[in-house]
Write a protein that binds this DNA or RNA. Structure first.
Length: 717
DNA sequence: AGCACGCCGACT
DNA sequence: GTCGGCGTGCTC
C-alpha cells in the first residue's frame, strides 16, 4: 500500500499522510486534492513511501492536472521553513498565492481588424478599426481605446471588418533577446561581465559578489550574465528592492533585451499576478524582475538569480514567515545548482566576509568610467560649529549650499526623518504626544496639519491645546524632520526652489518619476529628502550633499548601525556630482571620532570593513557568530514580561549559546500590544534553527500571546 | 486556512 | 428561554 505525505498551504506544523489510491501515479511536487477535516483541499506531494503508518489513512481524492512543482522547489519550501523556524505549510502558502493561477488561463474572444477596406463607416467604427491591433485584444479594451462601447467592435465582426479569435486572457510575455545590442562596455566592465557570464555558462552552483561603486555600470555588467542564462533557454530572476521596481527600472531591461520583463511585487493585481505565476510556472516568462516574494514563484527552469542592491534591508520579510530573500536566493541556487549574482555598491558585511573567505567569487568593478571620482566627504563637528539655536543647519552646510547656488548647481539635504518634527512636547506640562496604542511619539506634519504615528499609521489633526494640561498654544515641535529642514533652508535661501522628497510627498510612481525628472533637468535647487532619494538616480548638476544628522543611525544598540550609516552615506554621497564634477558632501555629527564616520571621511572602504569585521568577530556577531531574536507579544504588560522570563528559563542548555534579555524593544508597545525581546547569540557551529525550534516547542503561549522567532534579525526596532 | 465546538448578549 | 457573536482548537 503506497502512501504520500501531503503538504497543505496552511499553518499546520507539518505534512499529513494519505493513502494513494491504486492506479494513481504520483511524484514529488504533484498537486493533489485530499480530504482534510470536512473539506477537500489542494496540497502538494512532498514524499512518497510504502512504510506502514499504523493507522487508517484517508485517501487522496484526485491528482490535479497541472504542472507539478519542481522537486527543487519542494526542497526549497521545506528548507525555508526549517531554517526560519516557520511551518512548511505557511511557506507553501507563499508559493501558492492564488489557487486560480493553477488552472490554465481562461479562453476569451479577442478581436483584430481583418484589413478589409470598407467604405461608409460610422466614425465610431472607424475609430475601432484605427485603434484595433496590431495585436488581438479584448473587445472592451479596444472599445475603451477608441472611446466607444464594446458593441461596436462586435458589430464590425458581422460585416467582416474584424475577426474574432478565441485566445487565452493571459498574453504571453515577450521573449527577451540576449543578442539585442546593449550599451557599450568599458574594458573593465567587459572583463567583469565575461567572468559572470562564464559562471553561468559553466553551470552548477556559484555565488558571485559584484561589487562596484555607484555609476560603475553594475547593471550593464550583470545584464551579460542574464543574457548568457537566456541564451541557454533558462529563466532568470532579478530581485530588486521594492522601491526600485519602477517603470524606469523596467525600461532599462527593455532597452537591453528588447522586451519588457515580467514584473512581480506584493501589491500586484489579481489578474497580472495569475498571469505572471502561470507563465513562470510554464517556463514561458523568461525574465522576471521582482521584489523579494518573487523568489517563491514556481520557476520551471531557473538558471540565474540576480540580487540587485543585495545589502538593502527590504529583502528581509518581517511579517508572517520571516526570511531574508538575499540569503534564501543563495539557498535556492544551491538546491537547484545554478548561479547567483549579488550586486551592490555597498555590499553587506556578511557578503564581503564570504567574498574575502573565498566562499563567493568577488568581482570588483573599476571605479566610474572616465575621470569622475567619488565625492570628497567631510565631517562637521556640531560640538564646535553648532547650528544657530533652534536650527539644524550649521554654517559650513549653509555656505556649501550658497556656493553651489551661486554657480547654478544643485544641492541635496539628507535627513532620514519624515514630517516636520519627530516629537511634539507641551511647554507647560512637559507632556509628549504619543500614539494611542503605542509608545512611539507622534510626528508633526505641518504640511498636512496633522500629528502622525509612523509605526501604526495613526493620524489626527494637530491639536491646538495640550491634551493633558489643556494649555493653549503650548505644543512645541522638537527636533528636525525634512519639512522643518526645508523651512530652514527656505529662510536662508528665499529665492531658491526647494522641494521635499519623502514617502509623504512622493505620491505614485509617476509622481516620483516626474519629480526625479525635474531634479535631473535642474528645476529644483535644493532637494530635501529621506532615504527615498538614495535609490539610483543620476543628477548631473548635483554637486553637494549635506547630511543633516550623521548620528541618527549610530545611536541605539543596533550592531549593524555602523554598517547602515556607512552604506547610506556612501550612497547619498554618491549622488553628488555623479557624472561631471567631483562633488562634495558634509556630514553633521556629534561624534566625529566614530570609526565609521572617520573611514567615510577618509574615503577608505577597506579600513571601514576591517574595523567593523574586527569588532563583529570580537563580539561574536554575524558573520562570525549567529544571531536570532524572539519577540513576545501580549495584551498585558506584566504577563508579557512573565512570559518572556519563562521563555528564558525554558531555554535548552547548550554550550555556545547565550541568551540576552528579556529587554524592552525601542518601541515597547505596538498596536496595543506589549512587547519583550530576547536575543540569542550562538557560535557558528551551533544549529541555531534547530535550537530555536526545540525551544519554541517547549512553550505554548496562552491565548492572545504570541512568540515570534526571527533568524538573523535585521531590525532592532 | 476553514470549519466546529463552546460560552455570553439581544430577540420571537 | 433561544439565536448567534467570534475566540480557540484540530485537521493525516
Amino acid at each position: 500500500m503506497q502512501n504520500a505525505q501531503i503538504l497543505f498551504p496552511v499553518n499546520v506544523p507539518g505534512a499529513f499522510d494519505y493513502a494513494v489510491p491504486i492506479g494513481m501515479e504520483l511524484s514529488v511536487g504533484d498537486f493533489v486534492y485530499a480530504p482534510i477535516g470536512k473539506q477537500m483541499k489542494l496540497g502538494v506531494v512532498i514524499g512518497l513511501g510504502t512504510a506502514e503508518v499504523g493507522r487508517e489513512l484517508k485517501a487522496i481524492a484526485e491528482r490535479k492536472a497541472t504542472r507539478p512543482l519542481s522537486p527543487d522547489m519542494v526542497k526549497f519550501v521545506l528548507w525555508t521553513a526549517k531554517y526560519n523556524v516557520a511551518s512548511p505549510g505557511q511557506v507553501l502558502r507563499m508559493v501558492i498565492r492564488s489557487y486560480k493561477a493553477l488552472d490554465p488561463s481562461p479562453i476569451v474572444n479577442h478581436y483584430l481588424p481583418t484589413g478589409e477596406t470598407l467604405r461608409q463607416l460610422t466614425s465610431s467604427r472607424r475609430a475601432v478599426l484605427r485603434e484595433g491591433g496590431p495585436f488581438p485584444a479584448r473587445a472592451s479594451e479596444i472599445a475603451s481605446r477608441a472611446g466607444v462601447s464594446a458593441g461596436v467592435v462586435k458589430g464590425l465582426v458581422k460585416i467582416g471588418a474584424m475577426q474574432e479569435l478565441a485566445m487565452p486572457v493571459d498574453a504571453p510575455f515577450p521573449v527577451p533577446d540576449p543578442e539585442h545590442p546593449g550599451m557599450a562596455l568599458t574594458q573593465g566592465q567587459e572583463d567583469a561581465a565575461k567572468e559572470l557570464a562564464a559562471q553561468v555558462k559553466m553551470g552548477g552552483f556559484s555565488v558571485s559578489l559584484l561589487d562596484g561603486v555607484t555609476g560603475s555600470g553594475k547593471t550593464e555588467v550583470y545584464f551579460e550574465a542574464v543574457a548568457e542564462a537566456l541564451r541557454q533557454g533558462g529563466q532568470v530572476l532579478v530581485l530588486v528592492p521594492e522601491i526600485a521596481l519602477t517603470q524606469a527600472g523596467l525600461e532599462r531591461f527593455a532597452k537591453r533585451f528588447g522586451a519588457e520583463p515580467a514584473a512581480w511585487h506584493s501589491a500586484i493585481g489579481d489578474a497580472p499576478r495569475r498571469r505572471v505565476w502561470r507563465e513562470v510556472a510554464q517556463g514561458r516568462a523568461k525574465l522576471v524582475v521582482g521584489a523579494r516574494s518573487a523568489l517563491y514563484l514556481p520557476f520551471a527552469d531557473l538558471k540565474l538569480i540576480v540580487v540587485d542592491e543585495e545589502h538593502d534591508t527590504s529583502y528581509k520579510q518581517e511579517e508572517g514567515v520571516i526570511y531574508n530573500a538575499r540569503d534564501m536566493s543563495v539557498v535556492r541556487a544551491k538546491l537547484s545548482g545554478h548561479a547567483v549574482v549579488l550586486a551592490s555598491a555597498t555590499p553587506s558585511l556578511e557578503s564581503l566576509h564570504n567574498a574575502r573567505s573565498g566562499r563567493f567569487a568577488h568581482i570588483v568593478l573599476p571605479e566610474r568610467p572616465g575621470a569622475a571620482v567619488l565625492p570628497e566627504i567631510g565631517l562637521v563637528d556640531l560640538k564646535e560649529t553648532p547650528a544657530e539655536k533652534g536650527d539644524f543647519l550649521s554654517a559650513p552646510l549653509i555656505d556649501a549650499i550658497r556656493e553651489g547656488l551661486s554657480r547654478g548647481e544643485q544641492s541635496m539635504l539628507y535627513l532620514n526623518r519624515r514630517g516636520y518634527a519627530p516629537l511634539i512636547i507641551c511647554r507647560s506640562c512637559g507632556e509628549k504626544l504619543k500614539s494611542p496604542d503605542t509608545d512611539s511619539w507622534l510626528v508633526e506634519h505641518r504640511a498636512s496639519g496633522r500629528a502622525m504615528c509612523h509605526l501604526t499609521g495613526f493620524s489626527m489633526r494637530m491639536p491646538t491645546q495640550c491634551p493633558k494640561c489643556k494649555a493653549d498654544d503650548s505644543l512645541t515641535a522638537v527636533g528636525p524632520g525634512v519639512e522643518r529642514v526645508a523651512e530652514e533652508a527656505a529662510r536662508h535661501f528665499p529665492e531658491a526652489k526647494i522641494e521635499i522628497f519623502s514617502s509623504d510627498t512622493a505620491g505614485n510612481p509617476a509622481a516620483i518619476k516626474d519629480r526625479m525628472d525635474r531634479m535631473a533637468r535642474g528645476e529644483i535647487d535644493i532637494l530635501v529628502g529621506t532615504q527615498m532619494v538614495v535609490k539610483g538616480h543620476n543628477f548631473l548638476n548635483l554637486t553637494f550633499v549635506g547630511v543633516v544628522d550623521g548620528d541618527l543611525a549610530l545611536a541605539g544598540g543596533d550592531p549593524r548601525a555602523g554598517e547602515r550609516t556607512y552604506q547610506t552615506l556612501v550612497q547619498v554621497a554618491g549622488r553628488a556630482g555623479r557624472a561631471k564634477k567631483a562633488g562634495h558632501a558634509l556630514i553633521q555629527t556629534h561624534q566625529p571620532e566614530h570609526e565609521a564616520l572617520l573611514a567615510l571621511a577618509a574615503g577608505d572602504r577597506e579600513l571601514f570593513i576591517g574595523v567593523e569585521l574586527a569588532m563583529r568577530e570580537m563580539l561574536g556577531l554575524p558573520p562570525f557568530g549567529k544571531l536570532a531574536a524572539i519577540i513576545i507579544w501580549g495584551p498585558d504588560r506584566a504577563k508579557t514580561e512573565a512570559l518572556a522570563k519563562k521563555m528564558v528559563s525554558l531555554a535548552p542548555r547548550t554550550d555556545g549559546v547565550e541568551i540576552l534579555g528579556p529587554s524592552e524593544p525601542p518601541v515597547g508597545r505596538l498596536r496595543g500590544q506589549y512587547r519583550r525581546r530576547l536575543f540569542i547569540q550562538a557560535e557558528s557551529t551551533v544549529n541555531l534553527s534547530r535550537y530555536m525550534a526545540v525551544w519554541r516547542q517547549k512553550i505554548r503561549p496562552p491565548a492572545k500571546y504570541k512568540v515570534q522567532i526571527d533568524i538573523d534579525p535585521q531590525s532592532f526596532m
